[in-house]
Every structure is written in C-alpha cells, then in structure tokens.
C-alpha cells in the first residue's frame, strides 16, 4: 500500500511517500509562513523522486496537530482535496503520536515516551504513551514550567524518552528524560503511523475514513469571548 503523507502543523513541514514501511521519498522544508505556497511543489518533487504516480496512492495520511491551528488546517484541507480528487481514504494522524511512534522504534527498551510541541503563549502540547503505544496522557496544553507535574505522576520511578520540537523546550524536558531529541513530527512517521492505524481497522471502520470526517485536533479553544448575553 502506498501512502502519501502531509505535515504542516509545525514550523517545519513536509511530505512523504511510504510503501509498506519503506520510505520511497521524504521531503521536508522549514518555513512556518510558507506551507500553503510550498506544499504542492514538495508533493510533486516527492512523486518524481519516488517514481510513482497519483493513481498509485491508496491512502492519504495527514498530520492533524496539535500544533499551529492555521498550519494544521492547510495540510488537512489540502489532503481533503487530494483524497476527494483521487477517491481514496484519508486518515488523520496526531502530531504527538507520530513523534512518540518514532521514539518507540528508536528506543524500544524504554517504558514511556513523552512528546511535546510548542503551543505558544508559554505553553506546550504534551502527550505520553507507553511501550505498547497506549496513550497515558492524551494531548493537552500545559505551561512550560509545569512539565514535571505532568510527567512524574505518569512515569513514576522509571524513565522516559521525550521528544520536543525546539531546543528551548529541551531544558524543561531533560530532567525527566533519558534522551531528549529535538525533532518535529516527520512526514514519514505520519505516513507509517497512518498506515498502521489504517491496517488495524476492519473494513467497516475503514469506510469511515472519509475526507469529510477528518478535522484538525486543536486541543485549545479559540480565544474569542462571547457577548455577556451568551456567556454560560
């Protein structure tokens, strides 16, 4: 099965073409304000590099965040258009889950995996998974400074590996982690995790993987404040 993946929820983004866990092409770029302008050029380059055609793609896997609201929407909307145009399934992959999945493959002996990504306003999006991939802390937004309060109760006396998306956050994560990596969600891991999730579903559940059903995972609500008459 050939999977086309798209990730635009972080400052760096990219696309990958992956076939049965083999990465045929992976192209990343760094330009937080230019995802919309660059995305289809990256896609064309990936197809050329992988030497496959549009019609070969059977699944679109897209990073749904958490991350930049607008960034995630660019990738999700583009993926919707592609899935609708090609008539193929589309699956949303949580950015933090793709980061954790990568850690699990690189550090298989570790019991816990924490993934964090910049949420602005001095906050991080955080989630923690265990060795089996079960989610121990679902994606949430927390203050930089409260990372200990969120990691320690989950991992207890054991250690974890963490992955963060900027060097700035490494300092907060390092005390609780045996290894701190600085990596955004990678396009090929979005594809691999999307494919794994797709293959784990039965046919009825796969039928629900429709481009109309995938929405970004924002975690944080919009900032707007309702008028007094509408306040809860």
């Amino acid at each position: 099965m050939i999977v086309l993946s798209i990730t635009t929820s972080a400052a760096s983004g990219g696309v990958a073409l992956v076939q049965n866990d083999t990465v045929l092409a992976e192209i990343a770029h760094v330009d937080p304000r230019g995802h919309a302008e660059h995305l289809f050029d990256l896609i064309d380059r990936a197809f050329t590099k992988a030497n496959v055609t549009r019609g070969d793609v059977q699944l679109i896997a897209v990073d749904i965040g958490p991350g930049s609201f607008t960034g995630a929407r660019i990738g999700v909307a583009a993926a919707k258009g592609i899935a609708l145009g090609l008539g193929v399934h589309m699956i949303g992959v949580v950015s933090l889950a793709a980061m954790a999945a990568r850690l699990r493959s690189e550090f298989p002996s570790q019991p816990f995996f924490a993934a964090a990504i910049d949420a602005r306003k001095n906050e991080l999006y955080l989630s923690i998974e265990d060795q089996e991939g079960a989610v121990r802390t679902p994606p949430c937004h927390i203050a930089y400074t409260s990372i200990a309060e969120h990691i320690t109760p989950v991992i207890g006396n054991t250690s974890c590996v963490s992955i963060v998306d900027t060097a700035e956050h490494r300092a907060f994560a390092a005390p609780f982690a045996s290894t701190a990596l600085v990596e955004p969600p990678s396009p090929s891991w979005i594809a691999k995790l999307g494919a794994a999730q797709f293959l784990s579903l039965n046919n009825a559940d796969r039928a629900a993987l429709d481009p109309g059903n995938v929405v970004p995972l924002y975690v944080r609500p919009p900032d707007a404040v309702p008028l007094p008459a509408f306040a809860p």
Binding site: A77, A79, K80, G81, A83, L84
Partner: peptide
Amino acid sequence: GLSAAKGLAWA
C-alpha cells in the same frame, strides 16, 4: 478553501 481547491486540482 485555497488548500482544498489546490488538492482537488492537483489530484
């Protein structure tokens, strides 16, 4: 809309 339209046109 722009991203979805591009996706459709590309596909």
